[in-house]
Design a protein around this nucleic acid. Sequence first.
DNA 1: TTTT
DNA 2: TTTT
Lengths: 164, 164, 164, 164
Amino acid sequence: MARGVNKVILIGNVGGDPETRYLPNGNAVTNITLATTDSWKDKQTGQLQERTEWHRVVLFGKVAEIAGEYLRKGSQCYIEGRLQTREWEKDGVKRYTTEVVVDMNGSMQLLGGRGGSSDDAPRQPRPQREPQQQAPRAQAQPQQRPAAQQPAPDYDSFDDDIPF
Amino acid sequence: MARGVNKVILIGNVGGDPETRYLPNGNAVTNITLATTDSWKDKQTGQLQERTEWHRVVLFGKVAEIAGEYLRKGSQCYIEGRLQTREWEKDGVKRYTTEVVVDMNGSMQLLGGRGGSSDDAPRQPRPQREPQQQAPRAQAQPQQRPAAQQPAPDYDSFDDDIPF
Amino acid sequence: MARGVNKVILIGNVGGDPETRYLPNGNAVTNITLATTDSWKDKQTGQLQERTEWHRVVLFGKVAEIAGEYLRKGSQCYIEGRLQTREWEKDGVKRYTTEVVVDMNGSMQLLGGRGGSSDDAPRQPRPQREPQQQAPRAQAQPQQRPAAQQPAPDYDSFDDDIPF
Amino acid sequence: MARGVNKVILIGNVGGDPETRYLPNGNAVTNITLATTDSWKDKQTGQLQERTEWHRVVLFGKVAEIAGEYLRKGSQCYIEGRLQTREWEKDGVKRYTTEVVVDMNGSMQLLGGRGGSSDDAPRQPRPQREPQQQAPRAQAQPQQRPAAQQPAPDYDSFDDDIPF
DNA sequence: TTTT
DNA sequence: TTTT
């Protein structure tokens, strides 16, 4: 049920503790930023170069819950998802943000032994709050989540739907 | 020589005839847009849904030349590259464009029998113009290439370097 | 629900018309062989070298049915699956066969315009035989479902044995 | 320079300390076995199932040296390579072994913090012996390397070439 | 802007 | 056994 292939495979380190929210239908959504670093030898100078790329990753459903529980700032993880660009507006100007979407067709895996540098016990699932507490269906003050790299609007201001 | 994996695999159809330009150092750069289409059955309504995603793909070097010669509007092709987001400015506002970069570490392949719907004979390499004509090292009037999907500045306004 | 990643991505041409069989539980199983060809320039002689690799691909379920209907000898297709080695015995000697398994976690896509060189009208689904004929749901001796996934002897008691 | 795609992506744990040998031309060859584990819920019984797959991985060149230095039994690593089946003979009977080949077009990466359970200090490169010592061009007693999973002959009995 |  |  598809024409075409749209696949992204990443291994990198998580830029900050993930924040999981819940859609009105109860589905979890977790946003993370992932850093991948390339290094190569400059052909001219022969010097070792390095470049870090930051990726916006959005996880949905079961994998979003697992990400929210197990990933921490610094965690190394594997991501398999698809590229998706969504449009948003700011000050009447259209902007575009490209994300790596991970849903039930994708995959996420925590790698390595210790999972990052957060205060929470690493590699141990966080105490799972009650979903209701965790994701109030009606959110009075949607707390702002600091957008990484690309100043894009977050999924916090939704009412019932997500703009993509 | 890398920490992390940053890999994109696409199969889709090219949105328009590719345009190949040459960097001052003689390296070819080809921009294409690639459409990948997903379809799935809506869980609620049971109806068949469809969504087309447009990807900005930038090819460098040898693979850029091959893309410029063989790809046409409508061509189905396989792309293996890496994700890269570059920053640019317009009216004093920072914007970001995410592209799939294909260089010597990536790969491009024309798929299927007939290569697209262009006027040129498909699957036949285009008459190769002289590189000098094609890519004057000193370009008085860098012709504008219409940006696809995301209104981003092109690689035409470079002096010697590309902003990534 | 996994530790580790086991992923195979192939684009190649089908070596012969696929043959679809049905397991006692009604699930379809299609076997194909897929040829991928590499070419490279020999460093010593500078000559163009070529090597064709043949892959055994086993598809299960829905994707097996689609493969059986649409693929033909010569069809170019995309395969996403996982590596699996199964053990079997011949003349008291253990042998091993490695296959690329495509199930609901994998994917298959017919590529290009014309689908191969078979006599059947290409790209048109084959006349679908009645499932009952094809796969009698009620089988006197439902041999134990040769678990697709686990190290099973073979996928049914076919006579033609497999040459690798 | 290719028709077709032949790509394998694995993340798993190394089954034993790697053994690196050197070809007469000085190129390194490292063999490892890699375990990937899948788990899934059985549809009938609802029980959690698990299956471990062992992969034979052969690395060549620079990446073979890095693998030999940094990988240890238990190390978690990422492998990107291609599928290759080679034929060999035993007691006049042809057999086939499928391997994942990693060369300069592929990639290998050590994952996680501590790299395995070997006695050598993990994550620290092994003391690098002198290449000459390491890889005598004429090897009087090619040490036998225990073949994993598939009882295939090793690359030890080569004179000048490798049988694939 | 592509394709089926 | 495929394909260009």
